[in-house]
Amino acid sequence: MLKKLLLLCILSFHFSTYSQSREVKIISWNIRDFGKTKNSEELDKIADIVRDTDILAIQEVVSGYGGAQAVAKLADALNRKGSKWDYVISNPTNSSKYVTERYAFIWKTKYIKIKNRGFLVKELDEKVEREPFLLDFYVNGDKFTVLNFHSRPYNKDPESEIKEISKYILDRFTSPILFVGDFNVNNKNTAFTNLKDKGYKAAVVNKKTTLKKKCYRGQYVNYAIDNIYYSKKIKKVDSKVLDFIKNCTNLETGRYLSDHLPVYMKFSIVK
């Protein structure tokens, strides 16, 4: 009897360990003019901020050669900090002049795998200014999709873009998905209603992510517009805005890295 109980405990432990999905950490960050203004010292500071994540999703990579070069240099800086990283860069978005950008993903290769290099969602080309970049990731064989997006400015109807992408997501995906980026509207906006009605949640709620040019009464953040939205098949473990400014004395130098703070989320796949 004792042997049977012991065997049952071992099998139960083995099954529960096997069925648990590894926790994944992701950061979404609009890094202003990435590839146009960053020197080696600034890239190293960015690497220090994101080094503990598993996946970094970047918006606002400049469309020219400098953007791709900066992503490669950031991956190299991360590789020198103890882990092996890989990266992909999207083609330039099919956008009007001066707003064309690229997206990028950088990830640790030890646990995170890919099977293709991702693609810009051409079905949305006529409906959004900068079509999102989609990439499937795998952790312990479990697939999840990340849709990386940078919307139009707040005064140019980003809400209509969010609604179109939401429809695309809900029409095509039943697998775990994260919709990440700079949305230029607050998570409370009705543009996200369709996603929320289907069980999607925001990683952070009403957390300001953009940086002011100057401090006012000790405050250096403005708008809550960057976020990570995740489907029901993803379990949030932790989330926060990564405040690398911390106090007003660091604002001026911090803005050389970006005028946005990154959003962080730790999650696992629901089986």
Rank of each mutant, 00 (worst) to 15 (best):
K167N: 12
K232M: 05
I106L: 15
K271H: 14
E161P: 05
K212V: 00
A72C: 12
A47R: 10
R22P: 02
Q59A: 12
S21K: 10
K233T: 03
E129P: 05
N79Q: 11
D48W: 09
P262Q: 01
I106P: 02
M1N: 05
Y65P: 12
I26F: 10
L56Q: 07
D86C: 14
D259T: 03
F149A: 08
L135K: 04
Y264H: 12
N184D: 05
S90E: 02
A68T: 14
I10H: 06
Y138I: 07
K113G: 00
I31P: 00
F137T: 00
E101C: 02
T100E: 15
K213I: 05
K143R: 15
K246S: 06
S268L: 08
N148I: 09
R102A: 04
L6H: 06
A203T: 04
K127T: 10
L8M: 10
L74F: 11
K38N: 12
K113T: 03
E161V: 08
F179S: 02
H150G: 03
G66M: 12
L56H: 07
D243P: 07
K196A: 08
K73W: 08
V62E: 05
L74I: 13
R102D: 02
F267H: 01
K36Y: 11
E129W: 11
S16G: 03
Q59F: 10
